[in-house]
Nucleic acid binder design. Structure first.
Lengths: 201, 201
DNA sequence: TTGTAATTTAATAAC
DNA sequence: GTTATTAAATTACT
């Protein structure tokens, strides 16, 4: 039941992400993203005294590649014991705006989807090697098994027919993906071949 | 229109599955499916020397649940240096002990690159502190950035959009992990409190 | 050694 | 049905 599900482990994680209203979250994000570009006209000579203040982030326009790319992040080498990255709230500056209408997608959808990702999700099924082996064998012969075959497999493998169907869907997607990948590599090879043959001239 | 659709990217992938005629496919499938049941009368004492041979599949009658359900599938745990996962060739043993230890700088890189290519794993991306800082800021506002925001971030931070997405996935996993941990600690405290209060009586 | 980037895949939602 | 994306589990690198 529903209240049961809300008690779950991940409830806190959800709430911490949903404390701001969708409006506010989207608005704040817009502001942040915008701040990464709008300040092109600002002077770049502002003193950069304290790294990693809010200002240093929000004041950042198209970041200097040398700044962005340098100094790999090594948090565990820091002397700092203070782990501030924990159950973060970010509750401040909710007063940015009340009813901004500039967000593109439907925020309610995003909200509901976020919630649904956590609650009422089927636990991940772990297929055994034998099950996989048989499923793969069947897949090689027929990647679109009908309901009868799926039911048969389900009975044989002690799985729900639903799991079988999902497995075949994901398997087809995987095959398609790999095909796309190899085609991409082939095209890349063709390009490099073209280039090398041109260099030979 | 229809012929248009057939020209698409995935055409090859589909065709590779349709190389057998429908008759043949259905026939082979029938044989396979039947093989999962008909051999009830066969002796079960046949030597099961090599797991996952064709025989071990086809010889499987109503599979022993303990066999079918055990041993979760972990393909990448296998002998592994054989990088069969990617589109890579895995041409031969790289002979790890060739110059195994004490490669300090540039040979190490070459070796690692070879190995990476060989295993088919993307070289680990090292984010800069500034990149991390910005990613964290965005994460606090929205831990599920859509494609538009990811692309925007990618452009700003000079990263691939893919890296951004992976970063957010791992970041969410981290948050969840930390929540689980703290909840575990809380429960432990409750238990010890219970115990101490009982001892007081 | 730890933290985390990368990978794989079952589950889900949108279309 | 496909597609994109997620969580989960795990590997491997720094």
């Amino acid at each position: 039941n529903e209240s049961q599900a809300l008690i779950g482990d991940e409830c806190g994680a959800i709430k911490s992400n949903l404390q701001l209203s969708v409006h506010t979250r989207r608005r704040g994000l817009d502001l942040l993203m915008a701040s990464l570009t709008v300040s092109v006209h600002q002077s770049c000579s502002m003193s950069r005294r304290s790294a990693f203040t809010i200002e240093s982030i929000l004041g950042l326009d198209r970041p200097d590649p040398r700044t962005v790319l340098s100094a790999p992040h090594r948090p565990w080498t820091d002397v700092k014991p203070a782990g501030q990255s924990r159950g973060v709230v970010a509750d401040s500056d909710v007063s940015v705006d009340e009813d901004s209408k500039s967000y593109s997608k439907s925020p309610a959808d995003a909200y509901r989807r976020t919630l649904n990702w956590y609650i009422g999700r089927r636990p991940r099924t772990a297929f055994s090697s034998v099950q996989i082996k048989i499923l793969e064998s069947v897949f090689q012969l027929n990647s679109y098994p009908g309901i009868d075959i799926r039911e048969e497999l389900a009975k044989k493998l002690h799985l729900d027919e639903d799991r079988i169907q999902i497995w075949f869907q994901n398997r087809r997607a995987k095959l398609k993906r790999s095909h796309r990948e190899s085609q991409f590599l082939m095209e890349k090879n063709v390009l490099s071949d073209l280039q090398s043959s041109r260099e030979e001239r």
